[in-house]
Amino acid sequence: MAYPIEIILNRQLADCLAIPVFITDTVGNLLFYNEPAEEILGKRYQDTGEMKVGEWSTIFLSKDEVGKLLEPEDLPLVKTLLNQLPYFKTFWIESLKGKSEKISVSSYPIIGRAGIFVGAVAIFWRPSDE
């Protein structure tokens, strides 16, 4: 069974971009991440393929500016999955190896012409003030 065309087109766009892009299904399972996103995950898509939400969401920790762990529902992608709306937030991510990085995340729902919610996209940016 093929993925919805909107998911496929988002992947084909992500393949062309130099910014990290993550594409999930409606419950957060990671369907695709592009090469720039591989740096953030520390994994390669060709090695992992798709990843269950419980697997990829624990690869890095999300923290606020004083180092406090963020609740999942504070994260843009999780909010997009819950509310089917776009969100934006700047926060810190810390890899399991302890490397910390300030990051801005924009997320948006993938809602096709038929008005059906089929997944979500998160784009990671390095904030311009750095």
Binding site: M1, A2, Y3, I8, L9, R11, Q12, L13, D15
Partner: peptide, 18 residues
Amino acid sequence: ALGRSGLNHDIRWLSGSE
């Protein structure tokens, strides 16, 4: 093949494959 060099060989990612 839009945006790619050739087709994705995983047909789940191939438009219209179903």
